[in-house]
Design a binder for these strands. Structure first.
Length: 304
DNA sequence: GCATGTCAAGTTGTG
DNA sequence: CACAACTTGACATGC
């Protein structure tokens, strides 16, 4: 059975996430910084709980948690830990509530660090910051019971194999909390499924297959082949396979197909996905409305 | 109050 | 060579 997932935000539900900037924080004394951060983190933890409850009510089976749930946590100057925050205890216990709710209702949780996490970078400082960020997300993932932290392979720097080799060297030294959750996804400019599958197979890294990126940035593999081979990389880790879907805003024919549409055209869902046991993250601007509509569209397809 | 520019971080491709 | 796109809204600032 396909399990459809929502990415980070809601359109119509009363769920919101706050953030702040380093600039704003650095104008404050440390005490006031921590007070402000405590308010924001508590708000976000409570809204994560609201998000999971809303997802459950709507029949959504997976949720991607936005990276800055605890904003600026790893920043060199403004960074902090929950232990430093006045409401740290309540924040921890709220995360625990989220964990048990997601576990009980079978809502699968994941993280997707953004483009600044680059393990293949030739610059040691970039890699060091990336590892810090991954460790932060792994702590969060542990607290709420998320089994996936999904990233892209990063830049090419003129030589894909050399870049992947650097990635591999870093990967070997990642803490277990990160490595046990880290997955790799094909992107829409540089790394195709073909580029990544062998690498993932050799290292036992689950491969997140984004079929939209594959259509934007194709290789010699068919969608069926990529889906199957990706599935095997998950099987060896014992985790449920995860894929991504989105539809192009301007259609496949005209202009750039990359920007995401509000909803998913059900015909963009590969036939070979139907009936498979896996999670499909829905990347669509109409957020939960798009997930709910797609679930209904697929149900109709199955009953016809 | 409301509009608008800004926001930690990287890399690529375009103009 | 500089800058927008990626993806995105909420925050901070200034009127």
């Amino acid at each position: 059975m396909l399990r459809f997932g929502l990415c980070c935000l809601f359109k119509n539900e009363d769920v919101s996430f706050r953030t702040t900037t380093v600039k704003a924080l650095l104008n404050l004394t440390r005490d006031r910084q921590l007070f402000k951060l405590s308010e924001i983190c508590l708000h976000n933890a409570r809204n994560l709980q609201l998000a999971l409850e809303a997802a459950h009510r709507l029949g959504i089976g997976a949720f991607r948690i936005m990276s800055p749930l605890f904003p600026r946590m790893t920043h060199p100057e403004a960074g902090y830990s929950l232990d430093h925050l006045p409401d740290g205890d309540i924040i921890y216990s709220t995360l625990e509530t989220c964990r048990s709710f997601a576990d009980r209702q079978q809502i699968r949780l994941s993280f997707h660090p953004d483009q600044f996490v680059v393990l293949s970078s030739p610059h040691p400082a970039v890699v060091a910051n990336s590892i810090q960020e991954l460790e932060y997300q792994a702590r969060l993932a542990e607290a709420v019971g998320a089994d996936v932290i999904n990233i892209h392979a990063g830049g090419v720097y003129g030589d894909k194999l050399a870049a992947l080799k650097r990635f591999g060297n870093v990967y070997d030294y990642l803490p277990e909390s990160v490595r046990s959750r880290l997955t790799l996804e094909n992107d829409d400019i540089s790394y195709t499924p073909e580029d990544l599958l062998q690498f993932c197979e050799q290292r036992g890294i689950p491969f997140v297959y984004d079929v939209h990126h594959h259509r934007c940035n194709p290789d010699n593999m068919t969608i069926e082949e990529a889906t199957e081979r990706a599935g095997i990389t998950w099987k060896v880790t014992g985790l449920e396979q995860q894929c991504h879907i989105s539809s192009p805003k301007a259609g496949w024919g005209s202009g750039i197909p990359r920007p995401h549409a509000d909803y998913i055209d059900p015909s963009d869902v590969p036939d070979c996905w139907l009936g498979r046991q896996m999670t499909v993250d829905v990347e669509a601007k109409a957020k939960e409305l798009a997930v709910v509509r797609l679930i209904n569209d697929i149900r109709k397809l199955n009953t016809n």
